[in-house]
Amino acid sequence: MDHPTSTFDLLTRFQNGERSAFSLLFHKYQRRLAVLIYYKMSADLRGHVEVDDILQEVFFAASGSLKGFTYHSPGSLMAWLSRIADNAIIDAARHQNREKRNPEELLPFRSESNPHGAEPVDLDTPSRIFARQENVVMLLRKLDALPDDYRKVILLAKFEGLSTSEIAERIGKSREGAALLLHRALKRIRELEQAEEAK
């Protein structure tokens, strides 16, 4: 339901030196990206690092290099952020492994896994980003209930904002196969919603 040019507008404003545009971009994408990050993280890493920390890292990295980002197509910013998120998660996992060896080396922000870290900016731990967001939690519950391949196709379509041919490429199917998978995934979501309403 985005305004067709809003991302492009904000990007242009930021690249012209209007720094507050970044904050707007951040708010526009933060939740969607948070859900993506949540599912990109391994269960082990999720137990140690918070989605919020990764999200902060992603936006920090983005703020540094967004000046040089070229807007190719509407979905390209999200795809770009998603790639940064992949790197941030790899870094966090590496850091996590190192931390297991040197427990004195700490993550930047305070969290359950890191009680002596710097104080986070908001205090609703855990997963501050999802806190106060009943419907986000419900969405996560639905996504959690999906089989892996269903969830993957929904994340690619809805959260990374990819086109069907891009999705097909990612999951190694034909465009039609991807479309069918998405169809089934959505039907399952629909059922879950109906079950929820019935309750």
């Binding site: 509407p74 086109s163 891009e166």
Partner: peptide, 21 residues
């Protein structure tokens, strides 16, 4: 029919991935 629905969905996804309202 399932295929038709899937392709319509694909069309929708493709168009909204271009931030088309």
């Amino acid at each position: 029919r399932e295929r038709a629905i899937a392709m319509a969905l694909a069309e929708y996804i493709d168009r909204s991935s271009r931030e088309e309202f």
